[in-house]
Design a binder for these strands. Structure first.
Lengths: 349, 349
DNA sequence: GTGAAAGCGCTAACAG
DNA sequence: CTGTTAGCGCTTTCAC
């Protein structure tokens, strides 16, 4: 910067003004400085800028694993939302073990102004940690009650209820659920627990009996786990005519297992997932699902985080909760018609 | 840091030594400093450290779009490889338009020590840009000849040839290829162009005729594009008994379109993709594919980038090229047996 | 409109 | 083993 100043025969301050698009710089001076900048190939040092301003212009996003399509799409949306605000995003994967998540939550991601955190293994028992957080934080996807932290999530219970109701309206009476958490304890509020609760409420509303055998614990929520759980369900001999998978990835596994077992979807078994990942549009049959408002979640979360950052650590602000809208997307796996024109195969009857 | 020093009654330097795990610090002093650190909740400022050292400890990864599963899995692998070296990763999505890619390439990602760049829209005509790059850069996934830049890629031609040979060995003679680049010009070396070249070579080796009508231009490489192209192929009336999709995502779209048209896979049409994304293991039928060595690519690329960073901008080092190993993965879509035990459905015949 | 000087938090160099 | 000093590149006063 000093070199630029020398070449342009101005002071360092003026160079700074030009770089930061400050008003009140004489056009002639400005162009002279700009010329010097290109000439010397000058590029501002953001570390230094950050040192001065206390801001890095970078936010962190911690997800369990990017290879789960939902989180990849979420990251996509978060990065896009951040870019609109000239922020970049450091992405961390913390879901592989609990300790890793604890470390991330305790320290944030280095070099960032704040963190969007989507926990996988932390639960209500860890909510005490939240009191010690001294950096801007917004939690995604789950509600840990009583915490002092902003949350962006959706109404898991109501959405799950709606999914079950959708199946019930299709005349299904033996609805299995895939993805309950293996060690379910009272008071937990993981997405899995909330959705199972919604499932039960949905059954009750539809006046369907609740059969424990139809509640299948599955973790993690990968495709192979969905396939395995479906196979177990088939082998168990329990009757069922629908599956509600607690996320789309599980549902894709279920689709495969059902297909291989010779079951017809949706005639023998209807399937609905949760998340509305892109893949679900192009399976055969295409996958009905709950659209969980991913883009709204990303946009809101980034906006909230930016506000927290701008407020600084001075005033304590009350925690906020945003619940994104959801939608039931009916596709072929629950009897919906194929979408036109793209995913309707030629010659389809 | 000064506060910590005061509380621990040592100098700032000693605090620094403790924080950086320097040797030659008296255990007593160390513990006193550590106590002060927790007491005050001190956390080092990485901007300042970066300012001093000229390093940020952050690398950039620019991919076209994270929502394409291949890139999500690549990002996953890159982040994991970076974490092993205590680096974090800023992920940018630059593939939406060409100008965006040019900007990223020209400037790198701010706040980073170097960039891993997987271009989507840039081609050989842009290779001149590479001469002006003044930061550590490693290109992923495509070879732009003659550049001064490190590349990590795979042998697209040979791999594509092997895929075609695999189909030929299965007795297929009318092999369509999905995903050729729409404006194909000579001298281009995009993955699409190289793979088409491999396709042609594979046909020649198998002594199969080359039919231009079986070469389908498709862009971008999303599932819907694969489905659409397959429908067009079906409607065109051209005979074919196999599809080689230039990536798995296209192949998934093809699987759906073929299924809806009533074609049986692999009996009527065999399908092979490219990339070995996780989804391909759980479709019905599961998808044969070319494993493109994603993890090897990520690991090598990060290692190369770290070397470039360590070398500094002083000496000009010659560009390096690493080609990852590839494998043909035979699954059901080309007649392979289902994998045991997970994705074999119960009751499968 | 522009310049001069101070200082953000840290580490490297050197001294003790 | 520990302390002192200087300076990384930038922005922010405050003068002019």
């Amino acid at each position: 910067m000093r070199d630029v100043a020398v070449v342009a025969r101005v002071s360092i301050k003026t160079v700074s003004n030009v770089v930061n698009n400050h008003p009140h710089v004489h056009p002639t001076t400005r162009s002279r400085v700009e010329k010097a900048i290109t000439e010397l190939g000058y590029r501002p040092n953001f570390s230094a800028r950050g040192l001065r301003s206390g801001r890095t212009g970078v936010i962190g996003l911690a997800v369990p694993e990017l290879r789960q399509n939902y989180f990849a799409e979420l990251a996509d949306a978060v990065i896009a939302a951040a870019e609109k605000r000239s922020l970049s995003v450091i992405v961390g994967q913390a879901g592989r073990d609990r300790q890793h998540e604890i470390n991330v939550l305790a320290n944030g991601l280095r070099q960032t102004d704040g963190l969007l955190f989507s926990p996988e293994r932390l639960g209500t028992e860890d909510s005490a940690m939240l009191d010690d957080i001294d950096y801007p934080l917004v939690l995604l996807g789950e509600r840990i009650f009583g915490g002092p932290t902003d949350h962006v999530t959706m109404d898991n219970i109501t959405a799950a209820r709606a999914a079950v109701q959708h199946l019930a309206e299709k005349g299904r009476t033996r609805i299995a659920v895939l993805g309950a958490h293996p060690d379910r304890r009272e008071g937990q509020l993981r997405a899995a627990d909330l959705r199972v609760r919604g499932y039960r409420e949905g059954l009750a509303l539809a006046e369907l009996p609740h059969d424990r055998q139809l509640e299948r614990a599955v973790a993690p929520w990968h495709q192979e786990d969905g396939a395995r759980a479906t196979n177990e369900l088939l082998e168990s001999g329990v009757e069922f005519d629908a599956i509600f998978a607690l996320n789309d990835t599980l549902a894709l596994g279920a689709l495969r297992a059902l297909g291989r077992s010779g079951r017809h979807i949706p005639d023998d078994v209807a399937v609905i997932g949760f998340d509305n990942i892109t893949d679900g549009r192009f399976t055969l049959p295409s996958l009905s699902t709950v659209d969980a408002g991913r883009d709204e979640i990303a946009e809101t979360a980034v906006a909230m985080l930016v506000e927290r950052i701008d407020w600084g650590s001075g005033v304590r602000r009350p925690p906020r909760l945003h619940k994104a809208h959801f939608d039931i997307i009916e596709r072929e796996s629950t009897g919906g018609a194929p979408a036109r024109p793209i995913d309707l195969g030629a010659g389809a009857k």
